[in-house]
Simulated scan of single mutants.
Amino acid sequence: MQNRILPVAKHQTDPKGEMLVFGEENQGGFFWSLLWTLDGPDADPIVWFRAYDEPPIAEQEPLSGFLIQFSLYEAAMGADYVALSRQLTGQQVDRLTERLPPVPLRPFWRGTSTRFYVAPGLVLHVSDGGGENGFSAWAGATHRGALAPLADIPIE
């Protein structure tokens, strides 16, 4: 597992005591949290991303959308069958995603603007790292046959 949502019993406050940490990166470099209040969180609160020595940054989606994106990201990263390509152009990304429905949420991972595309048994996430060939793509599938929609696209 790349990252994890913590069970309620493991929730803790951040180092400043301002946020309730509910998710973390597998190596402990960053975490996700909710604003810590005595009244408890809103019904669909803002999720805050924070590297341990940086100020918190609001995720683009509230908790409901964030959890969908988090689950899709982890499903792709932990899949038994994967395909990965780095340094893609915008045209290559268009070809790669043209037959896959996009997940209708704002980008995940604010710094890399990750978007998701899905098909039966397949999750593809495309990240924009900036620059001319700044895109990368990662596809995770439950079965290698689920990667078939990507097979005839001329991308290394």
Rank of each mutant, 00 (worst) to 15 (best):
L96E: 13
G65Q: 05
P56M: 13
E98I: 03
Q87Y: 14
L63W: 03
S85W: 08
E74T: 15
A79V: 15
E59K: 10
Y73H: 13
P62M: 03
P56D: 11
G90V: 02
A75G: 01
T89E: 06
P102C: 00
D94G: 04
L84T: 06
Y81R: 12
P101I: 10
L88M: 11
T89D: 07
P101A: 14
L84H: 08
A75R: 11
M77S: 08
G78F: 05
E59F: 09
S64K: 07
G78D: 15
A75K: 02
D80T: 10
L63D: 06
G65W: 10
Q91V: 03
Q91N: 08
D80N: 11
I57Y: 01
R86S: 15
R95E: 15
S71H: 09
A75Y: 04
L88W: 01
Q87M: 14
V93A: 11
L96N: 02
M77F: 10
S85Y: 01
L96M: 09
Q91F: 05
D94Y: 01
M77W: 01
P56E: 09
Q87C: 04
P102A: 07
P101H: 01
L96I: 10
E98M: 12
P56H: 06
L100D: 09
S64F: 02
E98Q: 15
G90M: 05
G65T: 13
Q60C: 10
A58T: 07
P62I: 06
S85E: 09
P56T: 06
I57D: 03
V82K: 15
F70S: 01
E61F: 05
E61R: 12
I57T: 12
T97M: 11
G90A: 09
I68C: 04
V93G: 00
